[in-house]
Design a protein around this nucleic acid. Structure first.
Lengths: 201, 201
DNA sequence: TGAGTATTTGAATTCCCCTTCAAATTGATG
DNA sequence: CATCAATTTGAAGGGGAATTCAAATACTCA
């Protein structure tokens, strides 16, 4: 029998397993047995901890999102120069390649968010937080006189996050020309005209 | 019994029925009986024409895509002024609201494109065609001296399509603030700085 | 009109997955 | 070491959807 674990440990395991299962099979096609397999357990054991699979899936999406966001914030905290921060943030919002698990997970949400309120709210709140993240960088840069913004910081920030999102989809869909490097360059092109800063990288 | 139809007519019907079924139930949740119901037939009849449901679904997605693209091209053909064309194109790339069936259909593909090569190729090719569409508008405008492009037309076009895509997701996910009008304004803000044109609307 | 073929139906079958639950196992606690 | 509760297994059942297929029906063409 698989090693027993405490309630909370097992729940964390299961959330991780669900995350992997969603990426592998899709948010709408993933089954109990997939999650169980990823966790190295049987379906019954999964059900013991999460009697409702859909609840586990929501938690997995939520956790994946937090992870993505926290990671970006952490990378950001190491820098002080607004221009460097901006470049770093743009890069950290893009997948490392077509298989990047964090972005694949987020992309799974896109379609479901149109059908499910829960997923819609989840995705919307992530978007808004990311917008705030950019906005504070832009505002700081403008206050320091480093950036000369072409329009208000909210508009620019919304567009920057939107570009990240969209190129995330292109990259995971394996666009033959647009990879992480190219996408970063495209977004930077916008960021340059929007901030009036060269944004070397 | 339902009226009989020729092989090719029925296949066209079924593709349309599948398109509606996908929008109603989601690409990963749609089932044979949904398609049959939309077509006014029984499951057996659907299977007679498409022994493999997934093949029908791919065809339906493809048809939906063509429809979306053709519609945009048609609206475009009615205009001559590059600035008007640009504004019109931006608007026609956005959903009319959270329930817009064409965009919902496309969004359903996003996640699947990361898992399935077929869907990845479909989505990628649509993206590229939309980029070309913008590029020809921008190039024409630049040649006529109406636009002064801030970077090469390919970069700007890619970003414009990316912004459309991303705001399409936000709108279908029912972002409380960003609706069709707001999204258009956000994209126009970029288009203005990219073209050096006021782009009144 | 009648024969022949293509299409559609509807019921039977099969398959797959979720759910339940009694029994087995594990680990903690005294 | 013995007891007990928590966790996990595995098999049984229930339900829903895909698949199969013989029969019925609708159209075509001679």
């Amino acid at each position: 029998m698989t090693q027993r674990k405490s309630r909370s440990d097992r729940r964390i395991d299961l959330i991780e397993a669900a995350r992997r299962a969603i990426i592998r099979h899709g948010i709408d096609r993933v089954q109990l047995s997939h999650v169980a397999e990823e966790a190295g357990l049987t379906s019954g054991a999964v059900l013991y901890h999460y009697p409702d699979l859909s609840e586990l899936l929501v938690e997995a999406q939520h956790a994946g999102m937090e992870r993505f966001y926290e990671q970006r914030m952490r990378q950001l905290a190491a820098l002080t120069d607004p221009a460097e921060k901006l470049v770093m943030t743009i890069r950290s919002g893009l997948p490392t390649g077509p298989l990047d698990p964090d972005v694949r997970l987020l992309n799974e949400l896109g379609g479901a968010a149109g059908r499910s309120r829960v997923y819609g709210v989840l995705l919307t709140s992530l978007y808004d937080r990311q917008v705030s993240m950019y906005q504070s960088i832009l505002d700081t840069g403008a206050a320091l006189g480093v950036f000369t913004l072409s329009s208000d910081s909210l508009t620019i920030s919304r567009n920057l996050v939107a570009l990240e999102d969209a190129y995330g989809y292109r990259i995971t869909a394996r666009h033959p020309v647009i990879g992480p490097q190219e996408a970063a360059e495209l977004i930077l092109s916008y960021a340059r005209t929007a901030t009036g800063h060269g944004l070397a990288h």
